[in-house]
Write a protein that binds this DNA or RNA. Structure first.
Lengths: 344, 344
DNA sequence: CTGTTAGCGCTTTCAG
DNA sequence: CTGAAAGCGCTAACAG
């Protein structure tokens, strides 16, 4: 293999063109007030010589990185993949770069990821919280240095942090109401850590829908777990052991709903005749399970794009026009066979 | 909100401790030959003053970024998420950072991602190729500058690029043999772009298994598409229109197999009695579809870890000990009901 | 074991 | 419109 090519700098370009490095630097940007001709000469020479700008030197000088950090619980859902794609789209257009990490649902990793992002001097941070994050102390250093942090989906309410999410309360209210309209009277709710807004709000929506339809709220029908598929299977066993058998299950995510359904089916329970089901997220699996799963859909691509746009807005705008409020995106109930009992 | 805190540097620490910046710099690293006491004083002061190292300055000086770039087709599979987690594990331990991007299965985006990585001066690159990548010209600049590029899973064979993958040929051979042993004689193969080793090798394995069991290879039984779930459904329709109905389908991935199964079921076909099925990847969906899908499992976490380890090895080793060969990881056939016809 | 010194490549006043 | 010069914060010879 040949020797690595020499790295060429603005000085090399300057020398070749008999102009100053300063002019080259300006010519390479959109800088106003550079002669059109020299600008063209500069970009041509740069291209021809195989120049690539040195971000380190530039960042060092400008004290900004043009990098945006992203911390999510997990990458392995089509939802998150969409979120990231949405972010990338927006971020690339604004000439920023993304650095992504997963907390694998633990605060511990979330904290260490945050520290890494901080040391890497990201210009801003987009975060969806881990399962068990209790406080947001680990994002304090960012705020102290004036680096914007934005929460999306799994948010934390706090004046310093703008948030992007859906109306989980309303969505859950609609799901529950739908189940009630199908004649269900004893509805189990499978939910996750109540520290997370998404689960707390869905729980509230469920509760309110019961109240509004004159159904008693029964604490024993609420099962809190990690919402994995295995947790769903465990829940199925618990449900089947209840004295009076429930007639519906509303799980706060699809994996858990599906794990639960699979176990129920194994035990010979008929869905939705014996027990109706609804999930949340509209994972592709909803259309694989039989019967297909009723769920709530919301657009990851859009959420990622909006989050990125708000962040970049706060990064580039004048100091006094920062967005600090919440943005609430739309979601929709998708009714499938798993919950349909009324014949028409 | 208060003013952003002042950024503190090794000079501030040096001043406070009445020593030189050079010593502080050394003290902050594992540098041998620094007095234990001064080292402790330095780290204490650094911590107390809220120091964070400035990677830009360091990178600029060292001409290396400690960043490893990753380009994958998509993030939205549990396989890829595992791969990334495996990489992160290894990479963090070695004090590198990861910057991840998805090509969304197009060369176009793969090329632009590669360029971005190049401009961001990654120290090395881990790549799994997009669906339609024809050549690897876009990785040439890395090689020219001596930046290692490693392919994993969807590889490209070339002396300059180490590769990590599984024996797709053997795995497919085993799947096909299994189907034949179940009494299947007319086996459809759903596959993807033959530019990708994974699909080409699986195709070869399929073909060879037929040959070794005295079954004629029939070109019309091989359907090439994009392997999406929708492509699977289309394939189902084609298959059902064939003059003599096939008795098995081996798809090169699970999504496609499942899309195909769902459509077949809708048409009233019995699986595996009328037609047996096998997929590839062991996606969680395999255990949701009914009947559960026979498939090939391989460990993403391991593959990510190995790829990262090889890369870091090449980065840190002496010039002459680079790994340039291939590493082949193990995979396993997982037999489920979708392909079991023999009663025992 | 520690200090001195000289840049890494770029941006940005400040002058022309 | 362009140039000169300084400096971002760190590291690595080299010299004590």
């Amino acid at each position: 293999m040949s020797e690595p090519e020499k790295e060429i700098t603005i000085y090399d370009i300057a020398k070749k063109l008999n102009i100053s490095a300063a002019t080259v630097s300006r010519g390479l940007k959109d800088h106003p007030g550079v002669n059109k001709n020299t600008k063209k000469k500069i970009t041509d020479a740069a291209h021809e010589m195989g120049y690539r700008s040195n971000a380190f030197a530039s960042n060092l000088r400008k004290k900004s990185s043009n990098i945006i950090g992203v911390i999510v619980p997990r990458l392995n859902s089509s939802f998150m993949s969409d979120v990231i794609a949405g972010m990338e789209q927006v971020v690339n257009e604004a000439n920023y770069n993304l650095i992504i990490s997963q907390s694998l649902e633990t605060v511990k990793k979330e904290v260490s990821n945050a520290r890494a992002m901080f040391n890497n001097r990201v210009d801003g941070l987009l975060v969806s919280l881990a399962y068990d994050t209790k406080d947001i102390e680990h994002f304090k250093p960012f705020i102290n240095r004036g680096i914007p942090v934005i929460f999306f989906d799994r948010i934390f309410e706090h004046a310093e942090y703008p948030t992007i999410f859906i109306d989980n309360y309303k969505a859950a209210y609609e799901v529950t109401t739908h189940l009630i309209e199908q004649g269900c009277k004893k509805i189990v709710h499978l939910t996750g850590n109540q520290l997370r807004n998404v689960y707390a709000e869905r729980f509230k929506g469920y509760k309110q829908a019961l109240a509004d339809h004159q159904l008693a709220f029964d604490e024993d029908l609420v099962l809190i777990n990690s919402l994995s598929s295995a947790d769903g299977a465990d829940a199925a066993k618990q449900i089947l052991n209840m004295h009076v058998r429930p007639d519906a299950v509303f799980a706060a995510n699809d994996s858990c709903a599906i794990g639960c359904m699979l176990e129920m089916k194994k035990q010979g329970i008929k869905i939705p005749a014996d027990i109706a089901f609804a999930g949340f997220n509209n994972d592709p699996m909803c259309c694989v399970i039989e019967p297909n799963l009723t769920t709530v859909n919301y657009k990851g691509y859009e959420m990622g794009g909006v989050a990125a746009r708000v962040l970049i807005g706060n990064l580039t705008n004048q100091l006094n026009t920062k967005t600090t409020h919440s943005i609430i995106l739309r979601s929709e109930l998708i009714i499938r066979e798993s919950s349909v009992r009324n014949k028409r």
